[in-house]
Design a protein around this nucleic acid. Structure first.
Lengths: 241, 241
DNA sequence: TATTTTTGTAATAAATTTGTAAAAAAACTT
DNA sequence: AAGTTTTTTTACAAATTTATTACAAAAATA
């Protein structure tokens, strides 16, 4: 349906085929997409080209070692990198240079632990992206007010004439997007792209239904909307006061 | 609000340029200010002059070794010092010399691990400062009150409508974090990071279960919570009155 | 060390949200 | 006015998210 839970993509960089296979098998079982690279140069190429959500990177690699790969990727991408190091002895060899990685795990590792680490690292990078949810920022208490409509972006709450309405997340986001450019007519296409996301390929009428649901909550008379208005043949807009 | 978000400043003392670069990159990404020193003497100068909130100190340094730097700084500053050591053997030196480093970490280390240590040490020094204040001043008996909910942060006790509830530590901390920003929806990710900690690898649904347990204690009807509310698709929040 | 308590995990049930399709209504066109 | 297009409305099914429960592991306490 919707929220394709846009499957996260993980790039596996390792030259040992059996290990890659195990990783691919387990990651896909967990619902991730996977990409593979068998040497360092390919790894950098794929990383830059495909922009994976996380990279599993072995240190010992042909053509370009993992540390260099790590640094190269780091200069242009902010993706979490999880280093795979072979044995404790090898760590000493590489001594001190391993820093660019977000996390590392030594071989042999349990699949279970690796999955846990991957999840944790993905979570972390998500938090950073959605920094409007991150309470460490002091961007708190953001509000959008248009006429009788007031959106509290922290509480995900909408008020009409001071009265709080209980909107779902999807409804709230549509309303927020419209309200952020009140007065401006927004096409369904744009709404789909901005709220539902780029890779959404559902019916465009979905927007209508969502608008209907929002109206049912914020308008006194849904047949005569005063806040969220239809511009026939174009789209919808919030009436600026 | 307590989260003044005055950025913490971290002094990095290391003579290996690439390592410093990676550290700077990652620390700033995490929202810290950074200062750099490439040798021991400069390190002491900068430390005394700029008063950083934490110092990352490599042991092997030109001009004045890390151990001496540490002692020098310690004589006049109470800043947390996190030592970076190359090999395991050197740890003995640090511990043996008892020169007042707060923590040490051996190379190679993951960014994740380093950040966790830095955060932990900053927290500790903050607690120390606060508890100083608390005993010298009379600011004790800190409380958070939101509607019918009252949290006594000294006693780790929660009251609902005046009646004391017996919460476990974990439960209390979740409730405290939520209550400290009542009305604001907090994601599970943020809760995991703030309450469980930076290096926690567990399942995100753990939050749900903990919330369930809290509800079982503070809500009259867990199926219709009035205090700790779910914002579906986002997270949880404490209803501000 | 034994016992109790807390905490995390996993599996299942329940609740809610969301998308789709189809029919009805409204707004334009000719 | 009849036909066409677009939007609104409704109902339903599917998908997703959350709640609940039981159990096991870990931690704290006696």
């Amino acid at each position: 349906m919707e929220n394709m839970e846009d499957k996260k993509t993980i790039l596996i960089v390792d030259d040992e085929k059996p290990i890659v296979d195990i990783l691919v098998y387990n990651l896909e079982k967990e619902g991730y997409n996977t990409l593979e690279a068998n040497d360092g140069i390919t790894a950098v190429d794929i990383a830059l080209d495909r922009r994976p959500d996380l990279i599993l990177l072995d240190i010992m690699l042909p053509k370009m070692d993992g540390l260099t790969v790590c640094k190269k990727i780091r200069t242009s991408l902010n993706v979490p990198i999880l280093m795979l190091t072979a044995k404790d002895e090898e760590i000493d060899k590489i001594l001190g240079l391993e820093l660019g990685a977000d996390d590392y795990i030594t071989k042999p590792f349990s699949v279970r632990e690796l999955m846990a680490r991957i999840k944790a690292n993905l979570r972390k990078s998500e938090i950073k992206e959605n920094s409007n949810l991150d309470t460490t920022e002091e961007i708190k208490n953001k509000k959008i007010t248009v006429g009788p409509l007031e959106l509290d972006l922290d509480k995900f709450e909408a008020k009409v004439d001071g009265q709080a309405m209980d909107l779902t997340l999807r409804e709230f986001e549509v309303l927020k997007f419209l309200a952020s450019q009140a007065g401006q007519v927004i096409t369904r296409e744009v709404l789909l792209e901005k709220v539902w996301g780029y890779e959404y390929y559902g019916d465009i009428r979905t927007v209508d239904v969502t608008v209907r649901r929002i109206r049912g909550k914020i308008e006194k008379d849904t047949a005569n909307p005063k806040i969220l208005i239809t511009k026939r043949g174009v789209g919808y807009y919030i009436k600026a006061n």
